[in-house]
């Protein structure tokens, strides 16, 4: 398999997802290239999060295919756990593990899944925590962390698996306003390292600044996509225009 920059890392073909009668995704196709930073914006209920969660099969699609590094991961015979190891995910509500220390949150998965020895994982945890300014918290329990600190921990927990792509599901939506900046800063630095990133966000300014490409999702489809300049400065779809006129950024 080629690992050159710009090859297609995730290929989504005609993705469909229903919750009961409600059609949340009505046939979405999209390619995510290696090294690319893609932001997904749009109104609530438009299918952004569902789309993102289908990429690592946290939601099982009802139709269509998702190829990750050339493998159709919607195929039932594929071991999804192996592929998920290479797809980091960060959630709106952090979902750090309260029964483990900050350090253990990071080392648990790599050690359990045989990617690292305990010593290696420990060393990596120290480095990662230093990167996000949480070095002094390594032996604390998450209960003692602020929301912003929890989210920074959640990001490095995902990074500890050395993923090929990072998926962010509204990473700042549950944060107090004064903590949004610190989390966005961490994501910004991560993007600079060349990490392939897909981020569902309501932070329009941020999306504009970091993205290579912006997808506007509404009504279960990608209603518009393009460079940040195209989508934000010169939207073509009336729904994009309407949405952008309502949000402040």
């Amino acid at each position: 398999m080629s690992v050159e920059k710009n090859d297609i890392l995730i290929k989504v073909v005609d993705l469909q997802k229903n919750f009961g009668e409600l059609k949340v995704l009505k046939g979405v196709s999209e390619d995510i290239r290696r090294g690319e930073v893609v932001s997904i914006i749009g109104p609530s209920g438009g299918g952004k999060s569902t789309f993102l969660r289908c990429l690592n099969l946290l939601e099982t699609p009802d139709g269509g295919k998702v190829y990750f590094e050339g493998t159709d991961i919607t195929d039932k015979s594929v071991d999804i756990n192996l592929h998920r190891q290479k797809m980091g995910m960060v959630f709106q509500h952090f979902n750090v593990f309260p029964n483990m220390t900050v350090g253990e949150n990071i080392t648990m998965a790599p050690v359990l899944l045989g990617k690292k020895t305990k010593a290696e994982a420990q060393k990596m945890a120290e480095e990662l925590l230093q990167r996000v300014g949480l070095s002094d918290k390594i032996n604390e329990y998450p209960q003692k962390l602020s929301g912003g600190q929890k989210q920074r921990l959640a990001i490095v927990r995902a990074l500890a698996m050395e993923p090929d792509v990072m998926l962010f599901d509204e990473p700042t939506s549950a944060l107090d306003p004064e903590m949004v900046g610190e989390v966005l800063q961490v994501i910004k630095e991560l993007v600079k390292t060349g990490m392939t990133t897909v981020i569902v966000t309501h932070e329009m300014g941020f999306a504009k600044e970091i993205s290579d490409r912006v997808l506007f999702m509404d009504g279960g489809i990608i209603a518009e996509e393009g460079t940040p300049e195209e989508v934000f400065e010169n939207p073509q779809n009336p729904r994009t225009k309407e949405f952008l006129s309502k949000v402040l950024y």
């Binding site: 690592n56 946290l58 756990n81 192996l82 998920r84 190891q85 797809m87 980091g88 995910m89 959630f91 509500h93 979902n95 750090v96 593990f97 029964n99 648990m108 998965a109 359990l112 899944l113 959640a154 927990r157 995902a158 698996m161």
Partner: peptide, 25 residues
């Protein structure tokens, strides 16, 4: 919280590992 299971699964843990390491404790 379901988010605990999702976080564990997103790291690549299987259902049993998620149960033993994250949910049951």
């Amino acid at each position: 919280d379901k988010g605990q299971t999702e976080a564990a699964r997103s790291l690549g843990l299987n259902q049993r590992q998620t149960m033993m390491k994250v949910v049951l404790p």
